[in-house]
Amino acid sequence: MAELRIEDIIKPENIVFKKTKLFTDKPLSYCPGCGHGVVHRLVLEVIEEMGIEAETIGIAPVGCSVLAYEFMNIDMVQAPHGRAPALATGIKRIHTEKFVFTYQGDGDLAAIGTAETIHACNRGENIAIIFINNGIYGMTGGQMAPTTLPGMQSSTSPYGRDVETMGHPMKITELVSNLPGTRFVARHAVHTPALVRKTKKAIRKAFENQKENKGLSFVEVVSNCNSGWKMSPVESNKWLAENMLPFYELGTLKDE
């Protein structure tokens, strides 16, 4: 048999993976290697696969993903810092038939927006919260976050996070899993293909749960911030696996 040429493989009928059409044409503004891009894609793939783009309202936070609405071709609003769960509540309560999700980073969700996060979870708002934990404030230039690990350096903990004076990293996902209003709480990661697939399943569940009026679904994604961590993307993923994951253990914390 004649040798198969690449051109024989690269044909439209042979496509097994392509970019979801729910991305806009704008290139992502994230740094090379940033996990945000993967999670954006997973959210959009889930929306596309469920066929709910006309029924979905997204809420962008303040932080690196403040511009998520530039890349996601769905109706979106940009929330004040930390208030995304309040906006989501305000929307979902009068649009019970819609799919509403927030997309928030660790500073937004676990520091300035702690009250909004906890109370939306406690009320059991029928929404999905997608939470990106990269242990640092990326957008403002690598300052300490509520999730920064003990000893971890940042621009506001240049000698490492001293838990005696700077407090401990907050496991807000464990915290909200204890609230009766949350129905599905999980922590995943996106630095390997297998973990990306698991994360997508969790995000899918978070959206499916809304259809069943189950209550609040909360999916944390432990991600990298190679710029803030001052590493190459590949090194940052290795560092994540070796340092973040022992503290932020992956898995489903709650599924009711």
Partner: peptide, 15 residues
Amino acid sequence: CATVCPDTVITVYRI
């Protein structure tokens, strides 16, 4: 490769 690509720049074909 496409699964982990943060910028979704890879299209994959298979036969």
